[in-house]
Amino acid sequence: MNLTLNQADILRLAAHVEAAQLGAHAIPKLTDEFPAMTIGDGYAVQSELRRRWVARGERIVGWKAGLTSKAKMLQMGVSVPSIGFLASDMARPENSVIRTDDLVHPRVECEIAFVTSEALRGPGCDRDQVLAATDYVLPAIEIIDSRFSGFKFDLPSVIADNGSSARFVGGGRPRRVTDIDLRTLGAVLEKNGEMVTMGASAAVLGHPADAVAMLVNILAELDEELPAGSFVMSGGITEAIPVKAGDCVIARFQELGSVSIRFS
């Protein structure tokens, strides 16, 4: 990947983003200071951020694909997907309460998550390889939280901000990929008892396993593989919905059950 930032800038930006994530405050998008910043620069900052997470004693449990649906790309004004890492301290159990005072401006999405039983390595990873390497799929809610003011960003900035990763909640019913049609699963997101958005899994790059393959191929460009046992969120089926303290969110999925979470 093409880099324009030097090592000192990468370290400084990673520290800047990390402080915003841990302190739950908004910062200007990174391209305001570095207009020539590339997608490669974004991943370089993200990799340094990941190194810091591990240095703090957290485990990398998996990855997320982001900006994978037409609705999300339109909402955010970008044209290619992105990936981010998922760490153990971002996981929350279903039916639990998520604090909003350590988040900036959280939004929720319903997604299909994959748990792998074999390592996957790109380039050239495709849907069939992903399905063959999948132990099971399960429904998930992702809580995204851009650290950029007004949730306004460009692709290099959002990648440096770890794809807006904040919290994730898996739940529902685990299923084998051979037992369901992963392309046509319906999902409904309810907030405080009202249906607020809905869609089917094909909204994620045509098939959610294609989004996982895309993620593996981006990892290959970073010279990394997706280890066996990874938890991978394939991307939002619907647009992201803002939440605040007091909200209750339930994602209901065809064949996969539901996931619920509250915010305080």
């Binding site: 392309r183 319906g186 094909a202």
Partner: peptide, 26 residues
């Protein structure tokens, strides 16, 4: 599940939109 069944609509081989049965009166 008529309510949660996904609906995938393609036009000329490309994904056009997706929805779910719940869009119709729940």
């Amino acid at each position: 599940d008529m309510s949660l069944a996904g609906m995938v609509l393609e036009k000329n081989g490309e994904l056009f939109s997706t929805s779910v049965g719940a869009a119709v009166q729940g």
